[in-house]
Amino acid sequence: MIPRAFEYFDPPTLEEAVALLEQHGEDAKLMAGGQSLLPMMKLRMVSPAVVVDLWRVPDLDTIRRDDVVVRIGAMTTHYALQSSEVIRNTLPALADAARVVGDPLVRNLGTIGGSAAHAAHNADYPAVLVALDAELQAVGPAGTRSIVAEDFFIDTFTTCLEPTEIVTEISIPVPGDTECSAYLKLSRRGTDFAIVGVATALTEGEGGRCDDARVVLTGVGDTPVRATEAEEILKAGPLDPERLREAGEAAKRNLDPPSDVQADAQYRVDVSGVYVRRAVAAAWERSQSDVSGLGN
C-alpha cells in the first residue's frame, strides 16, 4: 500500500511550519511520528495534498518538571514517556498509558502530541490528559494559546485546533502528596486501540475518604467521557469495596458506546463498570503505603 502522491515539507522551525500551514490551509496535514497518519494515508482514508513533517524541528521532545508543572514536548515519544523516571514517579497514569500505546516499535516513533492532535476516539492519552487536568499549548499565526484538555477534544479525529495551529507542549500539574492516578486499558492484542480504557486521578482525604476524583473513559464515545456520577459517588464517603462497586455501576449509566468488530456496545458498557472499579482500586492502592483490600 502506497500513499497518494503529496508535496512534502520538513521545515526546521515552528515559524516556518506555521507559515506552511497558513499557505496550504486544509490541504496540509502535520506529521509528528507518523504512526497514525501514515497508515491512514496508505489505506487512503486520508490523502493530504501537502504533508508538513515536524521531525526536523528541534527541542520539541523534552520532559521538564518544576515544583508545580510537568512540561512535555509534543514530539516526545511514547517510549521516552514510559521510560522517564519523572513521568513514572509524578504522573503514573501517563506512564501506564505510554507503555500500552501501540507496540514497542510504534512507541519508538509515535508521539504524545501527535496522538492528542489525532484524537482517535479510542486512543489512550486523551482520557489520561483529561483526568490529569492537562493543558495543551498550541502555536499559530496569532501566537500561542493554552487549551484545557477537556475542551481540546471535540469529536472523533477532531480537536479545537485551527488548521494553522500546532501543538507544541502538554503541561500537567504536579500532583500533591495525597494524589495518585492510574490508567487501565482493555484490548485484545498489543498494537490495538482500547476497547475500553479508564484513566483516574484521586485525592486521598481523612478517614479513608477520597476528597477528589476524576474518572475518564476512552473508547466509549466520540471523545473522552467523564464519569461524573461515578466521581460524585467516590467522593461521598469512605472508599470501600461497596462504594467502588457503586461507582462502577454509575459509570455504566448513560454510556452510549459504539459497536465494532472488537466488541459490541453492551460489552463495552459492562466492561466499563469493571474497568472503572479496577482503575480506581489501582490508583487508590498506589496512594496508600500499607492499605489494600479493595481487590478488583
Partner: peptide, 18 residues
C-alpha cells in the same frame, strides 16, 4: 522491522525521505 538511528521501527510506516 529495522533499526533506525538505534531504534527498532516498522519501516513500512516511515517515509524514506526521513
Amino acid at each position: 522491522t529495522v533499526m533506525f538511528n538505534g531504534k527498532a521501527v516498522k519501516s513500512c510506516t516511515v517515509l524514506a525521505v526521513r
